[in-house]
Design a protein around this nucleic acid. Structure first.
Lengths: 125, 125
DNA sequence: CATGCAGTACGATCGAAGTCGTACATAGGA
DNA sequence: TCCTATGTACGACTTCGATCGTACTGCATG
């Protein structure tokens, strides 16, 4: 059956492996603030990051380099940190790498519909 | 009858009087950019403005002073301009006064669900 | 142990935006 | 016509964020 256009896909929360490193510091669900989240998403590069994570994540989470941005590494660190501190993404340290994924359940619980807007976004129209 | 919680209220687009002044310069519907709109909404004072317009607008639109903010007038002008230039509100000049209202239809068309998030927002939790 | 690699930390620079004081414009009323 | 009230325009100050170079950390591999 075709996807009903009215039923917004909540994006699946990927099952987490059992032996994960602790997440880096992040706001709790009830500490998420709409104005902060919107501020984190008011940047084209960060919208691209979140949208790509929502639509193209086959694996559980992804390293900074997986996105293939042509930017200095320190710039990317800055944006990934902004997303995490706003509560949009969760980051875990896997040895050398710091991997990110979207906090789908938390965001859907607090701001239903928001991730659908991000997924529908297109850069530069 | 009580409002159904599942049916998201699209907020009514208030009927416009027939003899309105021209709106001040604003982006067209198809020029609305998600990152710009989110940036305009990533400020507590501006969220308060939009939310108040959505929930408490009995009249068609409202003057800058109707909100009762305790801020310098020039600061308010700045924020109302930011909302209009992002496409969130429309402003019309009525003689001395510049009145604002939310572009409900345009925003619902381009970013469905966004206004519901703003209406559900509460300052400072 | 030396090298390479992934990514962070720090700090400098630059521009955009928030804040606000002051001056200005206009309509309405005494 | 003068005064007042509403609100804008402009400019100064300050803060914040984006960008990026450079140095550093830690693992993995030879």
């Amino acid at each position: 059956m075709p996807a009903s256009p009215a039923a917004a896909p909540p994006f699946k929360a990927l099952p987490e492996p059992s032996d994960l490193p602790q997440p880096l510091p992040e706001p709790a669900v009830d500490e998420l603030r709409l104005e902060t989240v919107l501020g984190a998403l008011s940047d084209p590069l960060r919208l691209t990051i979140v949208r790509k994570l929502l639509l193209e994540s086959e694996n559980f989470d992804h390293t900074c380099g997986w996105f293939g941005f042509d930017r200095p590494k320190s710039s990317l660190t800055h944006h990934f940190k902004a997303l995490r501190e706003a509560g949009v993404t969760r980051q875990r340290q896997y040895g050398l790498e710091r991997r990110s994924h979207v906090r789908v359940d938390d965001l859907n619980a607090r701001f239903p519909g928001l991730l659908e807007l991000v997924a529908a976004w297109t850069p530069e129209d």
